[in-house]
């Protein structure tokens, strides 16, 4: 019988020379779940995400999508990734960027037109659709970046620090958009903002030194750490050991 996990990581490890960026990570993320990855800088979040979305080859371990060990090529058709950097074609307009992404995932012309129209409407990109991407403000660029990941209608969406550098209003707007995607799409996001993880995520994994130290809801993590708020729980689970080492 097939399980209902959208994505599973088994014993996932990534080495760069002598250093280990991610060490024996085991994860199982359910379909329609919004899963958060928290950790301080250098914890291994981005490396783990890049392995999960098949952009980086793991040194060890395997990844399953809907219980199947499928090829990178097949997996890439079902997933999409919005990196923390605003990565788009600078000289192209918003619409052209969306059409490009749909085309590169091999979407047929009719489906491409339909999806582009849909994401433009969902992300309120109508007023800027004919503007060059490089001329947009940070908030619009973030929206475009996520819209580019969604235009291919992925089963699994990876968001690497989607609200980094945004003002409070833009961040709140993006939260609403992300919440609208919930349940239809499995979302895995990394963030530095604890309130963001707490507000958006069904479950949260805390990473430290390439290892997942705890997984659960924000309440479960507080209980596990024996703290009264989520920030204290995060510091207990991820931060203290590293800070002590740094001192």
């Amino acid at each position: 019988m097939k399980n209902s996990y959208a994505i599973e990581a088994k014993n996932l490890t990534k080495r760069f020379g002598d250093s280990i960026a991610v060490r024996s990570v085991n994860l199982a993320i359910g379909e329609g779940e919004l899963f958060g990855l928290l950790g301080i800088n250098g914890a291994g979040k981005t490396t783990l995400i890049k392995m999960l979305c098949r952009m980086l080859k793991p040194t060890e371990g395997e990844m399953l999508i809907k219980g199947q060990n499928i090829s990178n090529f097949e997996a890439k058709k079902r997933i999409n990734f919005s990196p923390q950097e605003t990565a788009f074609a600078q000289g192209l307009t918003v619409r052209e960027n969306l059409v490009l992404m749909a085309g590169m995932y091999g979407l047929e012309k009719k489906l491409c037109i339909k999806n582009v129209k849909e994401v433009i409407s969902r992300f309120d990109l109508g007023e800027v659709q004919n503007k060059r991407a490089k001329t947009l403000s940070g908030g619009w660029q973030r929206r475009l970046s996520i819209a580019m990941a969604l235009v291919t209608d992925p089963d699994i969406l990876f968001l690497d620090e989607p609200t980094l550098g945004l003002d409070v209003i833009a961040r709140r707007e993006l939260w609403e958009t992300i919440l609208q995607l919930k349940s239809k799409t499995t979302i895995i996001l990394t963030t530095h903002y604890l309130e963001e993880a707490e507000h958006l995520c069904d479950r949260i994994a805390v990473m430290s030194k390439g290892v997942i130290t705890a997984v659960g809801t924000s309440k479960e993590l507080e209980e596990k750490a024996g703290t009264e708020n989520f920030e204290e729980a995060f510091i207990a689970l991820a931060g203290t050991e590293l800070r002590r080492e740094a001192i």
Partner: peptide, 14 residues
């Protein structure tokens, strides 16, 4: 440098 290529490498292209 803009990571655009990295993003594109997520696409199912050889």
């Amino acid at each position: 440098e803009s990571m655009f290529l990295s993003r594109l490498c997520g696409a199912p292209m050889k």
